[in-house]
Simulated assay, not measured.
Amino acid sequence: MGERVLPRAERRRRTERRILDAARALFAEVGYERATIRAVARSAEVDPALVMQYFGSKQELFQQSVRGAAASGTDEGEGEGQGEGAEGLVERLLGTLGVKLGEMPQGSLAMMRSMLTHPEAAASARQVLGAQIDRLAESIPGEDARLRAALIMTVMVGVTVGNQLLELDELRGVPPEEIARLLRPSLRALTGPDVS
C-alpha cells in the first residue's frame, strides 16, 4: 500500500508551519536585523519565493512568528489574583523565574532579541509588558502602584535578558531558588503599602 497523498490545504498548512518554525528559530538566534528570507527558506527547506508568497514580507513573517509570544506573554501568572497580599504576589512572580531562566519558547526569545533594534518587536514587548503592569498594579496599594509595578517588571525582564541573551555566567549557573531568595526583599518592598 502506498502513502496517502495529503490534500493541498493540509500540505500548505504544514509548509507554512515549517516556515514559521524556521523563522522563529532564526529570529531567536540572530534577531530581526540579521535574519534573512533566504536563511529561513534554507532552514525550512523551501524556495525563498515560497516564503514571500506565504507571508509577503520579512516584517509579516516576523509578526506571524512572534504572535504566539505576544499572546502568551501574559500567561505566566504575573499580575493575576487581584486582592492577594504582597507575600503571595511576590511568591508568584518569583515562581516564574524557572521559566525565565530555563528553556524559553523561541517566539519569546525572538521578540526579546529583536525588541531593541526592531520597532515591531519593541511595540509587541511594550504591549505585553503594559498588560502585565496593569494587572500587577491592581494588586499593589498606593497612588504610585503603576510605577512600582513597572519597576518590578523591569527587574524581571532584566533578569531574563541577563540570563537568556547576555548569558551572564553569574546568572546561568545559579538555581532559580537562589535568585528568588535574593530578589524577594526588594520585590516585597515594592509591593508593600508604604515604600517611602
Rank of each mutant, 00 (worst) to 15 (best):
E3Q: 10
E3T: 11
R4L: 12
L6W: 09
L6K: 14
P7Y: 11
P7W: 09
P7A: 15
R11W: 07
R14I: 08
R14K: 08
R17F: 06
L20I: 08
A22K: 01
A23S: 05
R24P: 00
R24M: 00
A25Y: 01
A25D: 05
L26Q: 11
F27D: 05
A28D: 01
E29M: 02
V30P: 02
Y32A: 12
R34A: 14
R34G: 10
A35V: 10
A35P: 07
T36Y: 15
T36C: 15
T36M: 15
R38I: 07
R38M: 07
R38W: 08
V40R: 01
R42A: 15
R42E: 15
R42W: 12
S43H: 11
V46Y: 08
D47C: 11
D47R: 10
A49F: 12
A49K: 14
V51N: 07
M52D: 09
Q53H: 11
Y54N: 04
G56E: 01
G56C: 03
S57T: 09
S57R: 05
K58W: 08
E60C: 03
E60F: 07
F62L: 14
Q63A: 13
Q63W: 05
V66T: 14
A70W: 06
A71G: 11
S72G: 15
D75G: 14
E78N: 13
G81P: 04
Q82G: 12
Q82N: 10
E87W: 02
E87T: 06
G88C: 03
L89F: 00
V90C: 00
R92D: 01
L94E: 05
L94Q: 06
G95A: 10
T96L: 01
L97T: 03
E103P: 03
G107E: 00
S108Q: 14
M111D: 00
R113S: 06
M115R: 14
L116E: 15
L116D: 15
H118P: 06
P119S: 07
E120I: 13
E120D: 13
A121I: 12
A121H: 08
A122C: 03
A122W: 04
A122S: 06
A122D: 02
S124K: 07
S124P: 00
A125Y: 12
A125S: 13
Q127S: 13
V128T: 14
V128R: 06
L129P: 01
A131W: 04
Q132M: 13
Q132A: 12
I133H: 03
R135V: 03
L136G: 00
E138V: 05
P141R: 11
G142M: 04
G142D: 03
E143P: 07
D144V: 02
A145F: 11
R146H: 11
R146E: 11
R146G: 05
R146C: 06
L147H: 05
A150Q: 02
L151W: 08
M153C: 12
V155A: 15
V155Q: 10
G162Y: 09
N163F: 09
N163M: 07
L165T: 10
E167T: 12
E167D: 10
D169A: 12
D169Q: 13
L171P: 10
R172E: 03
G173R: 15
G173Q: 13
P176K: 02
P176V: 01
I179F: 12
I179Y: 10
A180E: 03
R181T: 08
L183S: 09
L183T: 06
R184G: 01
P185F: 09
P185G: 05
R188L: 15
R188Q: 11
T191L: 01
D194G: 02
V195I: 11
S196N: 11
